Measured scan of single mutants.
Amino acid sequence: MASQGTKRSYEQMETDGERQNATEIRASVGKMIDGIGRFYIQMCTELKLSDYEGRLIQNSLTIERMVLSAFDERRNKYLEEHPSAGKDPKKTGGPIYKRVDRKWMRELVLYDKEEIRRIWRQANNGDDATAGLTHMMIWHSNLNDTTYQRTRALVRTGMDPRMCSLMQGSTLPRRSGAAGAAVKGVGTMVMELIRMIKRGINDRNFWRGENGRKTRSAYERMCNILKGKFQTAAQRAMMDQVRESRNPGNAEIEDLIFLARSALILRGSVAHKSCLPACVYGPAVASGYDFEKEGYSLVGIDPFKLLQNSQVYSLIRPNENPAHKSQLVWMACNSAAFEDLRVLSFIRGTKVSPRGKLSTRGVQIASNENMDAMESSTLELRSRYWAIRTRSGGNTNQQRASAGQISVQPAFSVQRNLPFDKPTIMAAFTGNTEGRTSDMRAEIIRMMEGAKPEEMSFQGRGVFELSDERAANPIVPSFDMSNEGSYFFGDNAEEYDN
């Protein structure tokens, strides 16, 4: 993207840094990872977990959730003011799984939030270390993106479920800051804005008074975040219109849905970061690795190297396929839920299948599930090659597409044709070009129609051997075009429920 120079890199967003050079960025990201790792080690000690239990991804998720809940100030305040039966607002906890007599047992633990905050700050040299908290939120978000298709949420806001490739980060909490905003897809931002506008339509006082002023500035800020994701002048001009509207209503909703559809071809720039579970960072720190000293990046080879040398386990339900569970977590670790499966298959070195073909449910185990038949197995999170994460949407291309997802959002900077089903997408653009945004709409449609099938995206960008740390010898991959490109292809993934 041309304006790259004016933006802070995501590592800076990730670490609240002012302008830093590459070495400083690597050190501050490393410091953040160190903090998460030290916190995780301490929690495993508190909970008396064995090494194996500490490497269980379900335990990692519970521990991450506990610290996120302990620092969720708004919710904590709300819980104190609106006490609900049987919930102690000062405590947080969740299921911890232990191996007892050759069987997995679930144990519900409860801790004072104050105590968890103390352990977290102690692991982070006394700081609140917001960057580390956001990092864990993005890992949870990436896992949700890989596990669930947001059909219901899309339909509720009037969008087409086939636009799911635009929904990265749709389950990120509001408090995820600049680093969170960077990884949100165009569809996620559109959905947040539509929800806001709908509230304004239904509630006369939404934009009024002292609160209304705050609401208005939040609305304009979200519009600017979305505008910054678009790469064409016409899309940005249309966002200006939406932002400046005196009284946002149905016309703005129409414009936003139009823009979301246009992003299936004229893709937005959305950041991709490899955020790993805390149970990967903990053992690495415990083994003596100093992330701050060595430096770390979320968008280069580092996460690949770390996963190459990590042992992570997962509980497996009786009829689940461990290899499929591994694929789910591998995609989440690489922030690749909406990437082209052919690119992923090449990088991973084994075939990556669409969601609907995987015999696996989510990673988390519900409290009512029976533990008797639970097994555990090693997650295979290694890769054959590594590639640089991208934040450009890439230019655009036609490809055989599917009944489910009709476009992709690249996660890796790797040369390819970008699949999208042009006739299906263009069919949504018939007729409606009147109104105050008509010239911009016409211009956007013209650009979409001009998108050429034979153009290559990320020209000359390749993948790298894991021994090639400096990215000196790019390998331009070859793809098996007979395979499906979309992950949520004609899909039956479970729906995400809060």
Rank of each mutant, 00 (worst) to 15 (best):
Q168W: 01
R106L: 11
E465S: 00
V270N: 14
A2T: 00
R118W: 11
V242K: 02
A233N: 11
E252Q: 04
K214N: 13
V29T: 09
L172I: 15
A493W: 07
A251Y: 09
E454D: 07
Q459K: 13
Q20R: 10
Y52K: 05
K31M: 11
A123D: 03
R317H: 10
R267V: 00
T92W: 06
V109F: 10
A251F: 11
I33W: 02
E375C: 06
R446A: 12
V29W: 06
A179H: 05
R389Y: 06
N124Q: 09
N432P: 13
E380A: 08
C279W: 09
D290Y: 04
D112N: 15
R204W: 10
M191G: 08
E292L: 15
M440S: 10
A218T: 14
V270T: 12
G431Q: 13
E46R: 13
Y289H: 15
N397S: 08
M189Q: 14
G37F: 11
A181I: 00
N473G: 00
I445H: 04
I444L: 14
F458V: 01
I194F: 05
A233Y: 00
P95V: 12
A234R: 05
N124W: 12
N76Y: 03
P277K: 04
A234H: 10
K214P: 02
I138V: 06
N202V: 10
L154E: 06
D421L: 14
A181M: 15
A129C: 10
N395M: 04
S141F: 14
Q405H: 01
E252R: 07
S376E: 02
A428E: 04
M66E: 07
F429R: 03
A179M: 10
N370F: 10
L79M: 13
T430L: 01
Q327P: 11
G435R: 11
V414F: 06
D88Y: 00
M66Q: 13
Q231Y: 01
G169A: 14
G295K: 06
F39G: 03
A471M: 01
L193G: 12
S486I: 11
E443C: 01
S50K: 08
I197H: 01
A233I: 05
E375D: 15
N319K: 15
I265L: 15
N397C: 13
S377L: 13
N76M: 13
C333I: 07
Q311P: 00
Q235P: 12
G462P: 10
F71C: 03
G187R: 07
Y496N: 08
M191P: 03
T92F: 12
G200A: 05
S141E: 09
E80A: 09
I406K: 09
E320S: 08
V186T: 08
A337T: 10
N144A: 14
K198M: 12
R436L: 06
F304N: 05
R156M: 04
T360L: 08
I119H: 08
V186Y: 08
G349P: 12
M167C: 10
P410Y: 00
G282T: 08
T360G: 07
M1H: 13
F304C: 12
A179Q: 06
D468A: 02
R152T: 01
L256V: 13
A403R: 12
I253N: 07
R216K: 15
K113F: 11
A218D: 06
M32D: 04
D480V: 14
D480F: 13
V343A: 11
E434T: 12
G435L: 02
K229M: 07
N224Q: 14
V183E: 07
W104N: 04
G431V: 10
I36C: 05
T23M: 03
N483V: 01
D491I: 02
E14M: 06
E294M: 07
R213M: 08
G356K: 12
G5C: 14
D160Q: 10
R446P: 00
R75D: 10
E53Y: 15
S467M: 14
S486N: 08
T15W: 04
A271H: 03
Y487V: 00
S335Y: 06
Q459W: 12
E434I: 07
R236C: 07
M66P: 04
M13S: 02
N76T: 05
S383Q: 15
L266I: 15
M426L: 15
R416E: 12
G209D: 10
S141W: 07
R441S: 13
E114I: 10
S367V: 06
G158C: 10
G462H: 12
T350F: 15
M481H: 05
L418D: 00
A373I: 04
G485C: 11
L226I: 10
A427V: 04
V270K: 05
G37L: 09
R261A: 05
S287V: 04
P161H: 00
G54R: 10
Q168M: 12
G200H: 09
M191Q: 11
F39S: 11
G30P: 04
T360Q: 05
A260D: 12
R221G: 05
D240I: 11
M32S: 15
S376K: 09
V463R: 06
M167V: 06
D480Q: 09
N309W: 03
E369N: 07
P477D: 01
R102A: 05
P95E: 03
G394R: 10
D421E: 02
Y111V: 08
I475R: 00
L307C: 15
F304P: 06
M1K: 11
R216L: 04
S141R: 04
P477T: 08
R400E: 11
L306I: 13
Q235L: 14
A284V: 07
R156W: 05
L108S: 11
T188P: 05
R152Q: 13
R246H: 14
Y111M: 15
Q241I: 12
T430R: 14
A2M: 11
A263M: 13
A129M: 09
G17H: 02
D112V: 09
L166A: 07
E443S: 08
P161Q: 08
R348C: 06
L259K: 00
F71D: 13
G177A: 03
H140P: 04
E320Y: 02
G393H: 04
W207L: 09
V463P: 00
V100I: 11
R416P: 03
S60Y: 05
A451Y: 01
S217I: 14
E449Q: 09
T157Q: 09
F71Q: 11
D480C: 06
Y496Q: 00
M239Q: 05
V285G: 09
Y10E: 00
E375H: 04
M374F: 05
D145Q: 06
H272T: 03
K305H: 10
R99M: 04
C279E: 06
S50H: 12
M239N: 02
G17N: 04
T62Y: 08
A131Q: 12
G300C: 06
N319C: 09
E294P: 00
G187K: 09
A218C: 12
V408N: 08
P173D: 06
V242D: 11
V408T: 08
T15C: 06
N334Y: 11
L466N: 00
A411L: 07
K422W: 00
G17L: 00
L306P: 03
Q168R: 09
N368G: 15
L381K: 02
A234D: 15
T146L: 04
A153F: 12
N334A: 06
I63R: 11
T92G: 13
C279K: 09
A493K: 14
A129W: 00
G300Q: 08
F39K: 04
S287N: 15
G212N: 08
F479V: 03
K7V: 00
T350L: 12
S407M: 13
A278V: 14
N370L: 12
M447T: 08
V329M: 15
D112M: 06
E469A: 10
P354H: 06
S438K: 01
T147P: 04
G180N: 03
S274Q: 00
S383P: 01
A271S: 13
L341Y: 12
R216Q: 04
R391S: 03
Q241P: 04
H135E: 08
E254M: 12
K351D: 01
T437L: 04
N417A: 03
K422I: 02
Y78M: 02
M189T: 10
K227H: 09
A251P: 01
S69N: 12
A251R: 01
A22W: 02
I365G: 08
L193A: 11
E494C: 06
Q405D: 03
V312W: 13
G54P: 12
G93E: 10
R19K: 05
D439E: 04
M137L: 11
P423N: 04
Q42Y: 08
